[in-house]
Design a protein around this nucleic acid. Structure first.
Length: 814
RNA sequence: GCCCAGGUGGCGGAAUUGGUAUACGCGUACGCUUCAGAAGCGUAUGCUUCACAGCUUGGGAGUUCAAAUCUCCCCCUGGGCACCA
């Protein structure tokens, strides 16, 4: 007997499908389009991860089904290939990143093809290809042209021993990730992008898209919009003032001192007045060493130092306020200064510690709590009724914010202000393996953009990938490349040597898929108009804040300047979903160092790609993280083997195609409905369990017609495409299963003629009766009371009440 | 601290419009097949009990004829955000 042999059938059909070009999306089609987007992988040396296989299989299932439903599906793939691992590898070995990248891409391609994914390989993009990054650079020049890219000095994490700037993610537990050395904040010139200009739109337009609520919440949270006021605190005996941002203007009457961030420019400016300047400098030095990550530790005790010799005035009470510095006040949020009062826990702790004055101005409703608050036994941070606030006494916090705001505004001491947590986006990296920034710095003309015709500005080949001692990019050592003539005045000038961050290439790749070979534009507007927006974007949770935010921003910008057609609307993605991670056995993360990485190649070798696909779709809910279980793969393999054997069994027994089996027909229509609906809702695990149930019945049933069997395998085809194609063509079909129509179900065939009705007594299940569909209450009652097993429970007691649910149950209350 | 998701057999999970809890799969046991093993097939499998029956969806209370599903309180796990003024 022939055995199910995936090793033989899988490569055969993969070749055949590629030859036929089934999966090419057509640029011009009268069909409705469907743009399915998965996050393109970083081609690492480690090879394809089983996690990639999970999400790519999920969308492959949807793509295959939707094609069979008549859609022109665009399901593309590409490579997000700039990045640190290749560069670090180059530093270690001297092998150019372009070589390692090429090798990795070749491996990934082979692996993806072995999975049988129906990608449109004709549209492959690669962020490190000059023909691609030409347009990444073009977008940067547009940002520059529209004044959204600017250079500024900002503090970065500086590793003292590696002499290199680190991203926040590279600082682990306050020390350098690579060498474990100390980190210091250092000011450095960086290119920044004014994403803050789009903050409101990035919040408001979330109304237009279908993203999970938590993803929307994360985006909103990251942007961190808060409404408040800017308040001026005049300085004693001076015209000067300190400006403070607050959202709690209602508490201003309890403001008893001011706290500045240690980095606040006020300190340097008022050097002369401050009598304990040495002490201040020491504190500043100390706080420099505390990284952002350590600041997150709330258990840390509050600390601070007074600026001796300086006083401010509370604009509401005119009372004198000491001015302090403390490291819990952040220089880059608000104005880098706060007014401290009894209604903020940190301020409260600080006042207690250093014996600073405290005053209460808000009282809670709760009398008992109010008593404690009044006695300064407890810090009350909530809203309440004003107290100790002159004419504003008795107002609610909300009313008071408005009233006090108006009062101070009249005196010119306050104005409304909306503040954002979102910072402008640092767009420079002092690295090699990234897109060169296409700008030239001329002593006379300043920053000058390259002409569009001079793009792409190719990354020069170099020998040394190590960053320079001064923290400059490795490119800054390539003098021939750096020293150029100014495009404007032809005088001596220097290229920018920083490169773009990883995000640059992934911000807009979905646009390039619509028209990947265009040399004149980033993509033809006509093609964009047809394929965009992305109908459904799936990716990892780790990208739902930054990548999503950045790419939404870039799309909006391109939309604003007319680089993408206006009628598309301001959002690139209609719908976003996230897949759960695949963990190693035991629920820990897969990692090379732990040696628990599952290689998809090994699974394919042992069981075949179809088994891996079925297993990963069946293992659990798609959006949930789940641990790998080697044992369970067998179940997926057994299922496919049984499907294969059923075909053989049918052939041997010479079953005819004409068998009409009402029971099986009904089963199939129920299965069509459930599988079709489950796929669209990404409930792949229950879709497969429904198919398994169907097979279980098929195996027990003698009278299965070929037509029934073919319908069943059609439903299985998106999950196990190779096996089904093989079985399909073995029945003598000359064309591919994937040229077929997706089956439709008949509403009338979903109903059963007979139903089981549960009989309950006092809510407990005591039996069940078989009855015709839609049986009446009266009839059901009669049937139930005939049954001896049910009657015995009544024990002569009278029936108080009967609850009847049609086709489900009858409950007697006695 | 705040926000979100979740807690169901030995395991992954199903059922959330309130209406048979444990579908489907893994594992386990026994049997068939085999020289033997692997694979396969069949049967059983929530817990307690010889049985009758009772109990069971993190814990507690409540609403209801009826609760995994709804309400309240508490506990735990995972994820995100966070000295944000």
């Amino acid at each position: 007997m022939q055995k199910y042999n995936p090793k033989k059938i899988e490569p055969k059909w993969q070749k055949e499908w590629e030859k036929q070009g089934f999966y090419r999306a057509k640029d011009n089609s009268s069909k409705e389009k469907l743009f399915l987007l998965v996050e393109f992988p970083y081609p690492s040396g480690a090879g394809l991860h089983v996690g990639h296989c999970r999400s790519y299989t999920a969308f492959d299932v949807i793509a295959r089904k939707q094609r069979m439903q008549g859609k022109n599906v665009l399901y593309p793939i590409g490579w997000d290939a700039f990045g640190l691992p290749s560069e670090n590898y180059a530093i270690k070995t001297g092998i150019h990143p372009s070589i390692t990248t090429k090798q990795s891409i070749a491996t990934f391609t082979e692996q993806l093809k072995a999975m049988g994914f129906s990608f449109d390989w004709g549209r492959e993009v690669n962020t490190t290809d000059p023909n691609y990054y030409k347009w990444t650079q073009w977008i940067f020049l547009k940002l520059f042209e529209y004044g959204l890219a600017y250079k500024a000095k900002i503090p970065i994490n500086w590793c003292l021993s590696c002499k290199i700037g680190l991203a926040n993610e590279e600082v682990v537990d306050g020390v350098c990730e690579r060498c474990g050395g100390a980190i210091e904040k250092k000011e450095k010139e960086q290119w920044l992008i004014k994403i803050t200009k789009y903050a409101d739109r990035l919040i408001d337009d979330l109304k237009l898209v279908d993203f999970p609520e938590r993803v929307k919440a994360q985006q909103i949270n990251w942007i961190g919009k808060s409404r408040g006021a800017l308040v001026k605190f005049p300085l004693n005996e001076s015209q000067d003032f300190i400006e403070v941002f607050t959202t709690r203007l209602d508490t201003i009457f309890s403001g008893t001192f001011l706290i500045l961030a240690p980095e606040h420019p006020f300190i340097e400016k008022n050097k002369v007045k401050i009598t304990n300047f040495e002490e201040i400098l020491a504190y500043k030095e100390k706080s420099k060493k505390i990284s952002e990550i350590d600041r997150e530790n709330q258990e840390r005790e509050v600390s601070g130092v007074a600026l001796e010799g300086v006083f401010a005035l509370n604009p509401a009470t005119n009372e004198k306020m000491p001015v302090w510095i403390a490291d819990f006040v952040l220089a880059n949020y608000g104005t880098g200064a706060v007014f401290a009062d009894a209604h903020d826990l940190r301020d409260f702790k600080m006042a207690k510690k250093y014996n600073l004055p405290l005053k209460v101005s808000i009282l809670p409703d709760d009398e008992k709590l109010a008593q404690k608050v009044r006695g300064l036994e407890e810090c009350y941070e909530g809203e309440g009724i004003l107290f100790n606030s002159k004419e504003f006494d008795g107002l609610t916090s909300q009313e008071a914010r408005q009233a006090i705001g108006d009062f101070l505004k009249d005196k010119g001491l306050a104005k409304e202000k909306i503040n954002y947590k979102l910072r402008d986006w640092v767009f420079s990296r002092q690295r090699y393996w990234g897109e060169p920034i296409p700008l030239i710095n001329c002593e006379k003309c300043g920053w000058v953009a390259l002409k569009e015709s001079d793009l792409p500005l190719e990354l020069p080949k170099i020998e040394k990938y190590q960053p320079t001692d001064t923290g400059g990019s490795p490119l800054s050592a390539v003098e021939k490349w750096v020293n150029v003539k100014c495009p404007k005045c032809k005088g001596p000038a220097k290229r920018e040597t920083d490169v773009m961050p990883n995000w640059a290439g992934s911000n807009w790749y979905f646009l390039r898929y619509c028209d990947p070979k265009n040399t004149k534009k980033l993509a033809d507007p006509k093609k964009l108009k047809y394929f965009m927006p992305v109908d459904w974007y799936n990716g990892g949770m780790e990208h739902t804040t930054l990548h999503l935010l950045y790419s939404r921003f870039i799309f909006k910008f391109l939309w604003d300047i007319g680089a993408v057609p206006k009628d598309l609307g301001p959002e690139p993605y209609k719908k976003r979903t996230s897949h759960g991670m695949i963990l190693a056995e035991g629920g820990v993360k897969m990692s090379k160092s732990k040696g628990n990485v599952v290689n998809p190649d090994d699974v394919i070798k042992q069981y075949g790609a179809d088994t891996l696909r079925i297993y990963e779709m069946f293992m659990g809910p798609f959006e949930q993280a789940i641990a790998w279980d080697t044992n369970s793969i067998k179940g997926a393999y057994r299922f496919l083997e049984r499907v294969y054997r059923l075909k053989l069994k049918m052939k041997n027994e010479k079953l005819k195609t004409t068998i009409k089996n009402g029971k099986i027909e009904k089963l199939l229509h129920r299965t069509i409905k459930k599988v079709s609906e489950d796929i669209e809702q990404m409930k792949f695990n229950t879709a497969i369990s429904t198919l398994m149930e169907c097979l279980n019945i098929f195996e027990k049933e003698e009278n299965i017609g070929t037509e029934d069997y073919l319908l069943f395998i059609t439903l299985l085809s998106p999950f196990a495409p190779h096996l089904v194609e093989e079985l399909w063509q073995q029945t003598g079909k000359k064309t591919s299963i994937f040229q077929e129509q997706w089956p439709q179900y008949d509403e009338n065939l979903l109903k059963e003629e007979e139903v089981n009705i549960i009989v309950q007594i006092n809510g407990k299940v005591r039996g069940k009766i078989e009855a015709d569909n839609d049986v009446s209450e009266k009839e059901a009652k009669k049937l139930a009371l005939k049954d001896e097993n049910i009657i015995k429970w009544f024990e002569q007691k009278p029936i108080k009440k009967v609850v009847f649910v049609k086709n489900k149950l009858i409950n007697f209350v006695i």
